[in-house]
Design a protein around this nucleic acid. Structure first.
Lengths: 113, 113
DNA sequence: CGTATATTGTAACTTATCTACAATATAAGT
DNA sequence: ACTTATATTGTAGATAAGTTACAATATACG
């Protein structure tokens, strides 16, 4: 169990990330995008968050935050919001897939134990 | 850039994790440990959280949460809180180190670009 | 039973976030 | 300059989430 320490940690990180969801204030700190702007992007359907129930606050997971970061990058580069969103959509597909694969790996490994 | 996609993602995850901090409610959801108990453990000095300023709320990063999970495991197994804490301390050293290494890797890779 | 350890309850308060309105800014077209 | 669409920001009044500081209870063990 100690021999494969490095690998184990990385895989567990991925598993962990799926559960880690943070509030909008934290996302704002992490990304540098003002909370107000994040809400606006969400109103427009550009990005998404997970709402855990009625009348609760927005929660953002790894992929949600990643998307915000990518859009922010493109917008700063000169893209319009809509075209940035469209472009990021493609990149996200790759990320989503990679993420799924890693998560599966992590799960499989857990099942072994 | 696309060839090393898998690796890149994992490394970025690690970098990301350092910034990701969640509130006590979220930690409670993730770990299954009641918020009240988490505060109690913290009062006792068993675990730690990051307070970002005076009069702000507790924030927990990956390592903080991991520690809670490990202690919870041992306590459920029958350990007293104190001995569980002591035992987890050792495991955390390994994790801290692994984490530092991965973070360094991520940073180095970024510097290349 | 007594004592140490561990957990839980809650009132009163602060911080974080929400919605729903409106205002302003910026860019592009005519 | 005026118009229109796009993008961002401001804020009041609300609810949700988290805080401290008190106390109560539970559980284990000599």
């Amino acid at each position: 169990m100690d021999q494969k320490k490095g690998t184990e940690n990385v895989l567990l990180d991925v598993d962990f990330l799926q559960k880690l969801v943070v509030g909008i204030g934290e996302v704002s700190e992490i990304t540098g995008v003002p909370a107000r702007k994040i809400r606006y992007w969400e109103e427009k359907g550009i990005i998404q968050s997970e709402k855990e129930g009625e009348g609760t606050t927005r929660r953002y997971n790894y992929l949600n935050i990643k998307k915000i970061l990518l859009i922010q990058e493109l917008v700063e580069e000169g893209y319009t919001l809509d075209s940035a969103a469209k472009k990021v959509e493609d990149r996200m597909e790759n990320l989503n897939e990679a993420f799924r694969k890693l998560a599966t790996l992590a799960t499989d490994q857990k099942d072994d134990a």
